[in-house]
Nucleic acid binder design. Structure first.
Lengths: 339, 339
DNA sequence: ATGAAAGCGCTAACAC
DNA sequence: GTGTTAGCGCTTTCAT
């Protein structure tokens, strides 16, 4: 177990000051006007001694950790892990590393994570915020730490965010169902105040209205994030047995996976008995006997834009906050009854 | 943007030394014999000033960051993100935070990640190592930093690791196919030297041999991780058109998802024409028209055991290394032709 | 029972 | 061109 070699070790090794070594190893030889000969010697010595800088010390000195704190609902959810991967790659390009945490859509857990990450001086946060946490976000901002919200946001919070236009996307999906002749369209959503969910429900209702279909409140069923399976099973049955609707729109892929299992159990045929559209992708959608139509949001874009916003914040102290809307498109396949 | 309050600020606030505050806030009032009265005042002041310790400074002083570096092939792969979530939760229980990176099964990328994480002084690594990286792992060990390998390992490396018995699990799957009357059993695996893959192939061959079926080398096809889709498409067709086998065993869920798409394209009926078993789970398996039989490894156990090993290493300086084998069981469903 | 001070490894302003 | 020095925020030994 060889002992760590520090900056001063390489300095001593060739009898110069630590300052010089620091300059050279940080590519500041020009500004510091270090001799070319010297620079070469220093680099050589650093390599020979296998010097590895101590980023913790550097962070303490600089007040910057080159670390981004990522908070999502659940990193094991492919929606978030896919975004996480993009964020990891994009962050790396800028020399940042990411530490992550899962809030389980709980405001308390999210607060814990924010505290833990703050304590470790992350340079910025990227958060898919849990419901009712605008104050937490505002506090981060007040501390002067950049935050970017993704997937969900808070309308009256001045903060950078990136998301799709859920109202439109949802409307587009519902209108597709209507275009395919469906008139009794149900929706399975999450029971939360978060913007993305509100907008999706809103888009659903607006589309019905636009097409002169009167919304029935039994059509909209809601599950809690914490008891997904049970809630879906309990609430979907009254709607399907007997069949009160001719189409069902799922607000997320997790809802769709749970819902389709129930639909299978009940022996309902898609799309003949029931047309289906979901939000987001899933391997399951490709293998369902009637390939599932879905609203595709580019997770790559979300991740990239999130980092772009973070980096901008970090590099310029502009006050204005930006709101990036990424594209969403409807991938039409058999399940919605078009074919 | 209120300025950060430091230890000495709360010390000054009540006119005591920083040392006292440090003792109290770290629960060392007993050892340091701080007066009960004083302790109370200090805690009150810290709360009033909303003091948040600076973990970076603490880390520098202590030489410990309470951070674990997690390196997997790809965090967006549900196999790894599920494990990551468990690791996150278990690590948190011990006061650790995790930073993650994806190697894409590339030794170079893995080395980069190890360097970056080392530089940030992670206290330990949990790695699903890329092929041919025993030297990288050995180097970490030589530096005295705890490492736990998971999913794959290196037989002649003295290091803690956690994984299933791939040889057995693979054999069990293949024998199930044989029991169901299949005699020409193919396998789709990754083309890599990693232990898990070698063992799975080995288990497949051993099972054939044990049941007196002569292995034909055309039956074993291999795809590269980097060109999964293309390789699977290219190599699976000769085996299936015309049909040379009556069963196909997939070495991972990603291979299965890619393979089943080809099987669908070719119009082959599962399990009548071709029985199927895969490793690991997938939402897709539940929705395939013939629910897919699979080898289930407990990702929760893998994650928990990994952290347990890490924590043990961190707390005791025992030399012995442990090898944890977690359970794997075959979940038999329609696709393997049993029902 | 409390305070003073050194020092973790690094950077950068300043001196020469 | 290069060296000296102070200090980032914290812990801990030692003195009192």
């Amino acid at each position: 177990m060889e002992k760590k070699v520090a900056l001063k070790d390489v300095a001593q090794h060739i009898g110069v000051s630590a300052a010089l070594v620091s300059y050279v190893l940080n590519g500041k030889e020009k500004e510091a006007r270090v001799g070319a000969e010297m620079a070469k010697r220093i680099k050589k010595a650093a390599a020979e001694l296998n010097y590895q800088p101590n980023l913790i010390a550097k962070s303490l000195k600089m007040g910057k950790t080159k670390t981004i704190g990522l908070i999502v609902a659940d990193i094991s959810n492919p929606f978030f892990s896919t975004i996480a991967r993009i964020i990891e790659d994009e962050a790396k390009k800028h020399g940042y590393v990411v530490i992550f945490g899962s809030s389980d859509e709980s405001a308390d857990k999210q607060l814990d994570l924010i505290d833990v990450f703050s304590t470790r001086l992350v340079d910025a946060f990227i958060i898919a915020p849990a419901a009712g946490t605008e104050e937490q976000i505002q506090n981060i901002i007040n501390r002067g730490v950049p935050v970017v919200l993704m997937d969900r946001f808070f309308p009256n919070l001045k903060v950078d965010c990136v998301h799709i236009n859920n109202l439109n996307a949802s409307g587009k999906a519902v209108k597709q169902l209507i275009k395919n002749g469906r008139k009794k369209i149900g929706m399975l959503a999450y029971d939360t105040t978060q913007s993305h969910m509100q907008d999706r429900k809103q888009g659903y209702k607006a589309a019905l209205k636009e097409k002169n279909i009167r919304f029935k409140k039994e059509w909209l069923i809601e599950a809690s994030y914490q008891h997904l399976e049970k809630d879906v099973a309990d609430k979907i049955k009254p709607l399907l047995k007997p069949l009160q609707i001719d189409a069902l729109f799922f607000a997320t892929n997790s809802l769709a996976v749970a819902g389709l299992k129930e639909i299978n159990k009940l022996g309902i045929k898609v799309p003949d008995d029931l047309a289906i559209i979901s939000f987001d992708e899933s391997d399951a959608f490709d293998f369902f006997y009637s390939p599932v139509t879905y609203v595709s949001q580019s997770l790559a874009d979300i991740g990239k834009e999130a980092i772009k916003l973070v980096i901008n914040r970090l590099h310029s102290k502009s006050k204005k906050n930006t709101n990036v809307i990424v594209e969403a498109k409807l991938i039409v396949r058999e399940s919605c009854g078009s074919l």
